[in-house]
C-alpha cells in the first residue's frame, strides 16, 4: 500500500473504526452507513479526493446479511491516489444519507442506484427513477430480479413462437 494511502486509512480507522482490505493494489475501506458523509467530506477537504469517480452498489442476496454494498470510488488528482469506500446496507432498512452536498456527481449516481437497487438516499434533492420508466416495477439489478430472457426463434420452434408473438398492427 502506498504510504500516503496508509496514513489516510489509519485516520479513517481511528475516526470511524473502519476495517479495510487490499486486493491488487486497490484499497477498500468499510464505513458504517451513518459515517459515510463525514468520511467523504473528510477525504475531500483534508486529502484532496476531489473526484467521485464512480459510485455503484452490489447485491449479495441471498448469501450475506448486509445485503448491499454501496461503493464510492474516489480519486485524488493532486496526489494521484484512488480509494474505495464500501458501505454495507442491510436488506431491511434500505436507506443511506445522500452525498450530493459533498459531490454533485452523486446526484445522478444515487438516482441510478435507487433505480437499479431500490436503495433510498435520504435528503436527495431529486428522488426519481433515472434509467427506467417512471412506472416501472422492481429494481432490475437486484439478484432476485429475473433477467427477462425470452426464447429465441429457431427453425424448429419458429411457428410455435410466431403464433404467440405480439405483432404490432398498422
Amino acid at each position: 500500500m502506498d504510504n500516503r494511502l496508509e496514513k489516510i486509512v489509519k485516520v479513517l480507522q481511528e475516526k470511524a473504526g473502519a476495517a479495510y482490505e487490499e486486493f491488487r493494489g486497490e484499497v477498500h475501506v468499510f464505513i458504517a452507513p451513518g459515517q459515510i458523509v463525514d468520511a467523504l467530506t473528510f477525504l475531500r477537504d483534508e486529502h484532496q479526493f476531489s473526484l467521485l469517480s464512480a459510485m455503484t452498489a452490489v447485491d449479495y442476496w441471498p448469501k450475506q446479511d448486509p445485503r448491499f454494498h454501496v461503493i464510492y470510488q474516489l480519486t485524488s488528482l493532486t496526489q494521484n491516489l484512488s480509494l474505495q469506500l464500501r458501505v454495507p446496507v442491510s436488506g431491511g432498512l434500505l436507506k443511506l444519507p445522500t452525498a450530493t452536498q459533498v459531490f454533485q456527481s452523486a446526484n445522478w449516481r444515487e438516482r441510478e442506484i435507487f433505480d437499479m437497487f431500490g436503495i433510498e438516499f435520504e435528503g436527495h434533492p431529486d428522488p426519481r427513477r433515472i434509467l427506467m420508466p417512471d412506472d416501472w416495477e422492481g429494481h432490475p439489478l437486484r439478484k432476485d430480479y429475473p433477467l427477462g430472457y425470452e426464447e429465441p426463434q429457431f427453425t424448429f420452434n419458429f411457428e410455435e413462437i410466431d403464433l404467440r408473438k405480439p405483432y404490432a398492427k398498422e
Binding site: 427506467m132 432490475p140 430480479y145 429475473p146 433477467l147 427477462g148 430472457y149 425470452e150 429465441p152 426463434q153 408473438k165 405480439p166 405483432y167 404490432a168 398492427k169 398498422e170
Partner: peptide, 20 residues
C-alpha cells in the same frame, strides 16, 4: 429485428412488436 444479443428485461425483442 429480434432483440439481438440483448435478450433481457430492458430491450424490446424485435421492433415488430411495436410497429409493423
Amino acid at each position: 429485428s429480434c432483440g439481438g444479443v440483448f435478450n433481457n428485461y430492458a430491450v424490446v425483442q424485435g421492433v415488430d412488436e411495436v410497429v409493423p
